[in-house]
Design a protein around this nucleic acid. Structure first.
Lengths: 332, 332
DNA sequence: ATTGGCACTTCTCCCGTGAGAGTGCCAATT
DNA sequence: AATTGGCACTCTCACGGGAGAAGTGCCAAT
């Protein structure tokens, strides 16, 4: 195990297959190359490492990384300058868009990998306010504000005009009914909403309700922001060749969303072939949830070559998630 | 000139230096290879083409492409299926975010290049509505809606509470003063706004005004969306190597904004070294303005290798810009 | 002005070779 | 039983030398 750790660490640092001799020399192990060779044969037996060809050194397999991550790696705390950088980067963000944009940049910069950040999901968050305002007598703007600071707005053309007093009634009833409620509960809450209004305005109210539901439900978890794709190309020529499929995969929202998965608190690491998407078989993904209330309403993470520095990357992802969560709680 | 056109077209199609023999064969020119060789020597003299090495064919220089674009290329109209694709892609967009997101995807897909789309700038657009609403007695949300459909919102904490009637007054005065006005005119319009309110509310009003100005001015033209970066890697190995600096450049908002430049109606093509940014010396950029009112309030365009198919790309960029402009006018 | 012919240049591909790196295994040692 | 040094073996990679192909420039002829 000690040897597996050394192999992983050395390979991550040098990006070259590591042989028994250098291993003994570089890691101050008090055993001879020959012993290491014996052990390496055993590790290879177990499928934890392979050699690209007979006379090359060994490199870890996906399984090798898995064991390393699960049992061998020790958390590497961030350096104080890094902590400060994180702090600085977020302060001064003016709205949710800004927070998310800064976060994804930050994450890419700190980890030197591709960073992805999901917008706080509306589904799990709750209504802070719903605003209905008339741009014209037959043209409304609906604004839905969630407690995560996320805002959705939609413009709606009515068939029949609506006067200001009717609008005010809609507004107050709507807010009375929904503020503080989970967005997921909106369909149930608004089911009979229309019926409490006079018949002649019902078509308009129906339209309003359906737009609100659309804002709340349909386009909810779709938004993902990505940054640092140039880091993909930086990682040495051998990774460079496989860059195209990865870029391709990263352009599909669906793939990204599947990567991020359900927002859960704990940190998840998926390594190489553990990924469903074939295009990402040469990459690993580290994700974790974040959210203003302490429990996760969205996910952020990084994507990099399987041969990345897991301890450092993981602690960076964790740290950024914590900072953003705190920032969302305090500021927005 | 006829020969230059043939060289450019052939090189764009094959990505290989083109020699005199194939040129004569493939383009049905009724002259012999020897004649072509003489002419090519002349073209090389003028700096329009070069040969990578003595016994290779010729490839166009940046200047060669420039001449081709300016004087030799004929507009290639889009095929009906392409037109239909463009139409389909945009219909069903629900808000400005959605329109921009779809547009950039569409552009990347149609041109097979990297697409960039700037959000309609607030600066040149005008106020459709300003909404001030209280989330709590000392917590306001300000929403600024532009006639381009763009919405900015900001949350503002007040030091002293504000009651609903005061708020209503602010709201109506604010809208009366600003609706229909250019955003650029807001600072002048709101200069003395605070003074028409009783002294005790003035600090709050000041805060509101400054946030509105911030929304209107400071963060205006900054948003750019990009898509299709994977297309960079697709373009053959020789371009592939220089992909990293390009990706890097594309991550900097500043660079993108400089690329897009001032929104002007006409189409601009910048080829290779005509670009300021060194990282983009192997790429060309095609941009054009778009906007709902017919004159340009923002820019969109594509970035690709200098050896791209200019006629087709240019007409695609133009078509998308026209469609989006029309869509913005009709729907938002 | 255009053309065919021809010698010249340069790249690319292919092959063989030798050096280097790293292994596996064996016998010896602790 | 684990560890170690030694040694033959294997494989890659870098280098170099042709052979072949592509394409040119120039010249003389039309």
């Amino acid at each position: 195990m000690e040897i597996l750790r050394a192999i992983v660490e050395d390979y991550v640092a040098t990006h070259e297959p590591v042989g028994s001799k250098v291993l003994a020399a570089r890691h101050g192990l008090s055993i001879s190359p020959a012993t290491i060779r014996n052990e390496m044969a055993a590790l290879e037996e177990e499928g934890l490492i392979i050699q690209p060809h007979t006379s090359a050194g060994r490199i870890p397999t996906d399984l090798g990384y898995r064991v390393f991550v699960d049992r061998l790696s020790t958390v590497k705390p961030l350096s104080p300058p890094e902590r400060r950088a994180i702090d600085k980067f977020l302060e001064g963000a003016v709205d949710l868009d800004d927070v998310v944009a800064r976060t994804v940049k930050l994450l890419a910069q700190v980890t030197h990998q591709v960073a992805i950040v999901q917008y706080p999901s509306l589904k799990r968050s709750s209504v802070r306010h719903i605003e209905v305002l008339a741009l014209a007598p037959n043209r409304l703007m609906l604004v839905l504000i969630a407690d995560t600071g996320r805002v959705e707005q939609r413009i709606l053309d009515l068939v029949t005009d609506m006067n200001e007093s009717a609008l005010a009634e809609v507004r107050s009833k709507l807010n009375g009914l929904t503020v503080g409620q989970k967005l997921a509960a909106l369909p149930a809450l608004l089911e009979n909403f229309t019926k409490s209004f006079p018949r002649e305005t019902q078509p308009s109210i129906d339209a309003i309700v359906s737009v609100i539901l659309e804002m709340a439900i349909e386009r909810n978890e779709e938004r993902v922001v990505i940054s640092g794709t140039s880091n993909l190309a930086r990682h040495a020529p051998d990774f460079n060749e496989s860059v195209h499929p990865v870029l391709e995969a990263l352009e599909e929202q669906v793939v990204l969303l599947r990567l991020l998965g359900e927002a859960v608190d704990e940190m998840k690491v998926r390594i190489g072939h553990e990924q469903e998407d074939k295009k990402l078989h040469s990459t690993s993904v580290i994700t974790t949830g974040y959210g203003p209330t302490g429990d996760a309403v969205a996910t952020l993470g990084i994507i990099g070559p399987t041969r990345m520095d897991y301890p450092t990357s993981m602690s960076a992802v964790g740290a950024v998630a914590r900072y953003v969560s705190r920032f969302l709680q305090e500021e927005i």
